[in-house]
Design a protein around this nucleic acid. Structure first.
Lengths: 331, 331
DNA sequence: TTGTAAGCGTTATCAA
DNA sequence: TTGATAACGCTTACAA
């Protein structure tokens, strides 16, 4: 039999209540004698007692666990987000259950259910696509929830995002200021709010500069087949607009893929174009030393998300939702 | 009050046992009437019943959860390993609790305790450094455990690793075959078994080729300060051995950092050196198109680890430990 | 075909 | 300063 509060109590001739209070740190507060406290602690240690958190959770209603749902664990961006969330969470005594939605909203729904089954005390989600009934339910029931990176405009949830539009505008302005006369944009998943904002930021920067917006300069890459689609669309673009002299890459892998394309075509992209990218990824800075980056504050995102979530868990009552929009840093 | 087996039973005028059996899918098997099964299911659905897995776990002794401990969630390699493990695990109905040891063996110990507290049914660990008493305990008690990437030679545990020595030897031989006459190696954390094997593979390849092993060609980079240390040691090396014409990078970030150094020095590394790297990371292939890679079979590692763990969980009795050594692929 | 009751390991409320 | 006992929500013999 494995060692439990019960077994310790039996061995020591004490009651479960006594052992439990002492082992969960309330010994002093409850007024047990220093001697008993000592005895119990030592005995438990010597036996290598490990509390059963399932039982504790069932009893207290607190699992000390929160769930994180992201589109892809393997992606550099999301894995950094995960790290930025796991750290402050761990410091506050919570464990993280990470699940990957694969960008599939059905799987996302299932995962929400699963995690709630596991009695996570709160959920941090980087949403995939459409709204799900589970989200609706959480919103209306006031379940602690924080959306990161993306959010649903139609729902009143907590969220931590960046100023996609402002950051994009600033970045494109920077390209223009550096001499770009004809700037194209590469986006993907344009149905996503986030991408819409980036596109909007791009367009407004052009407008501000008195340049006209040409839709044939706005490439929307098919996410599922971005390798081929990037090559194809970039090829077409360069043919149609040989004088294009600037690119705003709306996300890191589009930048990377474009560079692959440029290299294969023997295009001297570093000198021929003014380049800008929303956020970055490994080695982008050395592949394109002159590229401008609008860097997302990953750690801040994690910290804010955790702090909002913990507050929400603590206060119990619904409370007002918190909306945080952080600023990128232009590099 | 939230909806539970109890509340459903009350509402429907049935017993807890009936509702429980039906809701956990044993309705048919237990011989309940199709009508009751229907009623219960529908009612539960309409109320959005979510089973409490803590309670179920406490009752059945199965949490359907396994833990993964890796040195760093944010690292490209480990995040890919995570993905490779999470997927097959999810398909078998298990959730993954991921924890980051930060390469700190004390934190690793704490995490093992925490996860075992949470009643994970098994643990997959990419170990940090030294042995910990927790590992000893798991080994001797037969707790389902699989080590990945690295392992403790002194313990008889399950593990899934790659043939570090063989892969390194093959890679270095390839450099030599391609004309390298004086090959240096960059390693880090040389106290780790894994790195020792890679170093050994390098040395034996040299020996096989009748080249003599010069320790001043074997750089051991300080992991904690690898940026500065790589630059410093590479600088020294090139000064001392201007005729070095090959490099074996024992890990992806050393390769990346070396390239940064070479670029900053204006060294035409792609043509001046024969390059090889143990595994890869984003964009390494385009930064160094001629570099040879000894690719680790990430997905296979994940699959094997999961399958061994699940077997272990299923059979209960200790059983023999399984040691899997996978082969890399030379690209 | 369905119900009763015990048990999983903790915590919590009183009482002693 | 300590102990009895119920409760958390679910599963599972065993009865009926």
């Amino acid at each position: 039999m494995s060692v439990s509060v019960q077994s310790i109590a039996n061995d020591l001739g004490l009651s479960k209540a006594t052992v439990s209070s002492i082992l969960s740190g309330n010994g002093k507060a409850k007024g047990f004698s220093a001697a008993t406290i000592e005895t119990v602690r030592n005995y438990a240690d010597s036996l290598g007692y490990i509390p059963n958190l399932l039982a504790r959770g069932l009893s207290t209603g607190k699992s000390n666990t929160v769930g994180l749902i992201i589109p892809a664990v393997g992606d550099t961006f999301y894995s950094q987000i995960t790290q930025a969330i796991e750290k402050p969470l761990g410091e506050r005594g919570y464990s993280l259950i990470v699940a990957s939605s694969e960008g599939d909203s059905e799987k996302e729904s299932k995962l929400i259910q699963l995690l709630r089954s596991q009695k996570v005390e709160g959920l941090i989600i980087a949403p995939s696509k459409l709204q799900s009934p589970e989200i609706t339910e959480m919103v209306s029931s006031g379940f602690p929830l924080v959306l990161v990176d993306r959010y649903y405009p139609q729902f009143d949830t907590n969220y931590v995002v960046v100023d996609n539009e402002g950051a994009s505008r600033e970045l494109v302005k920077c390209l223009i200021k550096n001499g770009a006369k004809k700037v194209a944009i590469l986006t993907t998943d344009t149905h996503l709010f986030v991408m819409k904002r980036r596109l909007f930021g791009y367009k407004s920067a052009l407008a501000d500069a008195g340049m006209n917006v040409d839709d044939s300069l706005c490439l929307s890459i098919d996410r599922a087949d971005y390798h081929n689609d990037t090559w194809k669309q970039l090829g077409n673009l360069l043919e149609k607009h040989p004088d294009v002299d600037g690119f705003f890459m709306a996300t890191h892998y589009l930048a990377m893929e474009s560079i692959r394309f440029f290299m294969s075509e023997g295009i001297d992209y570093n000198n021929r174009f003014k380049l800008g990218c929303f956020h970055t990824t490994t080695a982008l800075d050395i592949l394109a030393p002159k590229m401008f980056f609008s860097m997302m504050p990953i750690n801040e995102i994690g910290q804010e998300a955790v702090s909002i979530l913990i507050d929400n868990i603590a206060e119990k009552k619904p409370g007002n939702t918190v909306h945080i929009t952080l600023n990128n840093t232009l590099l």
